[in-house]
Design a protein around this nucleic acid. Structure first.
Length: 117
DNA sequence: AACGTGACAAGGC
DNA sequence: AGCCTTGCCACGT
């Protein structure tokens, strides 16, 4: 699982978007992709986040999947690290799941995306 | 160049 | 609510 050492420009854009997520709020991979002008490239967000060095200030933990869950295995240590970082910001879970209604950064102010007619 | 994989997502059962 | 399939696309082998 080596990470690509050549950081594509897309990664930079994605990480800038992630930095904008307010403390105490969360956003999904898909939302970050759209806000970065990369529709349908949610997976790329995962790659970008994985390329972040440990010391980075980027709030990677505020990115979760569309189901409102953490995308790591429950048994992994990184899962618990993310969960604890969120809890520290006041984001709590309802059974392993976060309610977008309460903590979704874009909840309510969703910009129409009706290109799926 | 082909193929499998993945910190994803949406739709069908 | 789960589980499965399909669509996506960048990467490593």
């Amino acid at each position: 699982m080596s990470k690509s050492s050549l950081a594509p420009k897309s990664y930079e854009i994605i990480l800038e978007t992630v930095k904008k997520i307010p403390r105490g709020k969360v956003a999904t991979y898909g939302e970050i992709a759209r806000l970065s002008g990369l529709l349908n490239q949610a997976r790329l967000v995962g790659y970008a986040l994985h390329s972040i060095p440990n010391k980075s200030k980027i709030p990677w933990h505020r990115v979760i999947n569309s189901q409102g869950k953490i995308s790591f295995q429950r048994s992994s240590s990184v899962y618990h690290r993310q969960r604890s970082l969120l809890k520290k910001e006041g984001v709590y879970f309802d059974k392993d799941r976060i309610e977008f209604k309460k903590f979704g950064w874009l909840y309510g102010k969703m910009f129409e995306e009706k290109n799926k007619r």
